[in-house]
Amino acid sequence: MNHRHTFLAVMVFMVTAMTDAAFGETLYVSAKSAQLRSGKTSLDPVVASLKTGDALEVVKRDDRWVQVKTAKGVTGWIYSGNVSESKPAGGDNELAALGKGFRRTEASGVTASAGARGLDKASESYANRAGITQQHRDAVDRMTANKIAEDDIQAFLKAGRLGEYAE
């Protein structure tokens, strides 16, 4: 076993140690955002707004809906597609965030802030070296900046009778 393998083995050990917290019937919100409703249809009033990673205690299940209790003690129904049994890892899990912390110490020019137009400094320099045309740079730039409002996605789901809008 070389150092690298030992290191990875220890990392796996630590990640396992950090993720075994769940006991009982706990679900986590896996969707970016989700509504807890008083009944099991999308027409029922919203009793709480939830976000990714929120832990929920299962009360009972009924087909595509699950009745749950939030950490704040609110009980309601959530669409089963919005929850998962494992806690979502997210954009940065703790180890990745820690790794970033290490690398940061010698970081010089960091990327433009989220949402700003323009390629990252490192990919811009890659584009120069790889001879990527301006047209193709603009395409990736537009792709990066492309936003769709949350409401538009919900309207799209609703029109297609998808997600919690299914009949």
């Binding site: 290191f7 940065d92 899990n93 990745a96 790794g99 970033k100 290490f102 690398r103 990327t111 490192a122």
Partner: peptide
């Protein structure tokens, strides 16, 4: 540091 998982900011680049 280099052996730790790649963070999201780097992933974006």
């Amino acid at each position: 540091g280099g052996l730790l998982p790649i963070g999201y900011e780097e992933e974006q680049t």
